[in-house]
């Protein structure tokens, strides 16, 4: 871990044990803002557990996760409940098994994501009940932000559809759009390309690059689709049985004998993409 200050998120000696099973073993990692960091590894390597530790859903057994927030200073995420991780530390995640609000429309999903700002503007619903202009204005702003991301993610035409009826790939996009409405500094995507067709995953690549380059958001990616990982990642961390076995640029990872061994033994990593996407 080179320079402390340059890292948006600093993971130090993180260990997560479930009884006798060590899901993550002494993991240290630095995540930079405005960059895409991918976490890869075979099934059961501890990738999703790592996300759960970052976002307050699990309390790590030992170790620390420090978010260097430009406004709120250094925040220790392992000590925060999950809703504060999103609200205060601006670290927002999506889920491997999509978690949308299925009976609510796409637009409503995106408005719910802005709950905290809106609730504050509605003064615990009082200003909202009275229909004061200050609340209406905040409500307008929320609609505008939602519309902006809907347009960017090509969801505008289905804004009024219940999300439960949408196709799998579209639901993934809605989940990302919803996470973006929280205004994250770091967005953690758990297998965003799973179930996408090649065209959709190419669009996902463009989106990820757009988010980091144009909006300077930090992106963390758990992904099995190597077409996505190798094309867009700035930095890759490989986990196997909870241990970090390699770290570096896509080129370094592709040529790392440890990684090749962990995945397939002797074969080249490019050939493994299809088998691993599960």
């Amino acid at each position: 871990m080179s320079n402390q200050q340059s890292h948006l998120l600093e993971v130090k000696n993180l260990t997560m044990r479930f009884g006798g099973l060590t899901a993550i073993n002494d993991l240290s990692l630095g995540i930079e803002g405005g960059k895409i960091t991918s976490i890869i590894g075979p099934n059961g390597a501890g990738k999703t557990t790592f996300f759960n530790c970052l976002t307050g859903f699990y309390k790590p057994t030992t170790g620390s996760v420090q978010m260097n927030h430009p406004e709120h200073g250094a925040l220790l995420l392992e000590k925060m409940p999950s809703h504060l991780v999103a609200r205060k530390a601006s670290v927002v995640r999506t889920f491997q098994n999509i978690r949308l609000f299925p009976n609510m429309t796409v637009l409503e999903n995106l408005i719910v994501a802005q709950h905290n700002a809106l609730q504050k503007a509605s003064h615990f619903s009082l200003a909202g009940l009275l229909g004061l202009a200050s609340y209406r204005q905040a409500s307008e702003a929320a609609m505008e932000k939602a519309e902006m991301w809907l347009t960017r993610l090509k969801l505008r035409d289905i804004a009024n559809m219940p999300t439960g009826n949408l196709s799998y790939g579209t639901q993934r996009r809605v989940e990302i759009a919803r996470a973006l409405c929280v205004d994250p500094l770091l967005i953690c995507l758990d297998e965003p390309a799973a179930g996408l067709n090649p065209r959709e995953s190419a669009e996902l690549n463009d989106l990820l690059l757009y988010l980091t380059r144009e909006h300077h958001k930090g992106v963390m990616l758990i992904e099995h689709d190597m077409n996505v990982v190798m094309k867009v990642s700035d930095h890759i961390c490989v986990l196997n049985f909870g241990n970090k076995i390699a770290e570096g640029t896509p080129e370094q990872i592709q040529n790392n004998p440890e990684v090749i061994k962990a995945y397939l033994g002797e074969e080249e990593i490019e050939d493994t993409t299809e088998e691993e996407a599960a």
């Binding site: 976002t55 307050g56 859903f57 409940p81 999950s82 809703h83 504060l84 991780v85 999103a86 609200r87 205060k88 927002v92 995640r93 999506t94 889920f95 978690r99 949308l100 609000f101 299925p102 009976n103 609510m104 409503e108 408005i111 719910v112 994501a113 802005q114 709950h115 905290n116 809106l118 609730q119 509605s122 615990f124 619903s125 909202g128 009940l129 919803r178 996470a179 929280v182």
Partner: peptide, 28 residues
Amino acid sequence: RLRKLPVGLAWEAVREDEVACKALGMNV
């Protein structure tokens, strides 16, 4: 009126998926 306010939407969101609400920074 409440249903159209953030609190009403939040009620429905909690009904739909509590975990997702937490991940979006909502105090469930």
